[in-house]
Simulated assay, not measured.
Amino acid sequence: MHIHMRGRHKSMRPRLHVHLTALRYFIETADAGSMRTAADRLSVSPSSVNRQILKLEDQLGCKLFDRINDGVALTAAGKVLLACVTRVEHDLETAATLIDDLRGLKQGHIHIACEDGIGRDFLPGTLAAFQAEFPKVTYTITVRPSVGIFSMITDGTADIGLAMEPPAPADIKAEAAEIMPAGIITAPGHALAHHRTVTLQDLAPHRLIHSRIGLGGVALLPAGTDQEPPFVNTNSPDMTTSLVQAGLGISIRTPVGIISDIETGRIVFIPIAEHQASPPKLCLYSRRHRGLSIAAEKLAQRLSADLPSFRNRVRALVTS
């Protein structure tokens, strides 16, 4: 390898082809103050070091060292060159580190906060592909409702968050978002199970099992809807699904988190027909005005790129 070194004006000085080996020998000699000591450190002969130094001096047209009885001392020109090549060496090390990071060669750690259903149906597929490409990256995944996810992003505990869109604080930004279908889930034998779609009024006679917003639940019942208070309130999406499967009621939600139950027929998902002023969105969040690590940024990019295909999968599931 060699470095092209140009003069201030091309017309005044031809391009120099300076080999990294010569620069390494020069740096070692300057540090040791002796070509013999430098040669010992480099495991080469003193004559090899001397040849490389002479080659540099010939290319630059000046002396880099004064030969003294017990070694060598840098000339003024040598001190200038040493300062320059030290900066180059540092820049090359920095570049190598950044390139290693970009390639995923260095170990990184990403803390993800997500809702339970998103962690079940969306996140694993993307992480599997990402980990195959970047095997040294490790993860902490914390399942929280959306409010807890925002808190973790704000205080820096989490790098990125995945949640169904609630109102976000001012210091949180959505990196990407995709609308998810909203509807009800029922047991296969429920009275509404054969419907292609339902209206909110259709739900009034039926017992509602309510899962908290941010844990699978969706706020769709407007004020004034003739709906009794929920038959069951729970903070567990799995409990909600189990109660619905047992025929104890219906629940309003998106399919995210119960895709396998819908695909196998254990649960029936029925879209709600009314237009929703604010349809549920699956969002990727990060903290505004705070940069992500290279690993976290690359994962955020991958998650953003995978969201549209996940949206299409969910839509196809509920319209088939």
Rank of each mutant, 00 (worst) to 15 (best):
L292S: 03
R196Q: 15
H190L: 08
S309P: 08
I53Y: 00
L200P: 05
A158F: 10
A193E: 07
P135Q: 12
V232C: 09
L92S: 07
K173I: 08
L299W: 07
T21E: 15
G247S: 13
A168N: 07
S11H: 15
I209T: 10
T157A: 15
A295C: 09
E115M: 13
G71N: 00
R302I: 13
E178C: 13
V49Q: 08
H275M: 14
H4G: 05
V88I: 06
L200W: 05
D70I: 03
G108P: 04
T199V: 10
F150M: 07
S47H: 10
M35F: 11
S48M: 11
G33Q: 03
P46S: 04
T319S: 14
V18P: 04
I68H: 00
R36G: 09
A187Q: 12
A132P: 08
A163R: 00
A96R: 10
A132H: 14
T264P: 04
S236H: 08
G291L: 04
K55M: 04
F134V: 09
H289K: 12
A296D: 06
L292T: 00
V72C: 02
T94S: 05
G216K: 02
T186K: 09
L23Q: 02
I209R: 10
H206F: 14
T154C: 07
L215T: 04
V85N: 00
M152S: 12
E297Q: 14
V314Y: 00
A174T: 04
I118V: 11
T97V: 12
R212H: 12
T29M: 06
D261F: 15
K63E: 04
T97P: 07
Y25F: 15
N235F: 13
S11E: 15
D66K: 05
T264S: 13
D202I: 03
T240C: 09
H19T: 14
Q301V: 14
C62P: 00
E28V: 14
V143E: 06
I185T: 15
L54W: 06
H210S: 11
G148M: 01
I258E: 02
R8G: 07
C114L: 11
V80S: 00
L307P: 10
L56I: 04
R287I: 01
I141Y: 05
E133H: 09
H289L: 09
L307N: 10
D171V: 00
A83P: 00
I172H: 02
T142N: 11
A113K: 07
G125P: 09
E263R: 13
P308Q: 07
A95K: 05
M35R: 12
G104F: 01
L60N: 00
T86G: 01
E89H: 05
D31A: 13
A277D: 15
L23K: 01
R253P: 07
E89Q: 09
E165T: 08
I262F: 11
D171H: 02
G214H: 03
C84Y: 04
N312R: 15
S43I: 06
M1C: 06
Y25S: 14
D101G: 12
A176N: 06
D91R: 10
D58C: 01
S34G: 08
E274G: 01
L54S: 08
S278G: 09
L98S: 09
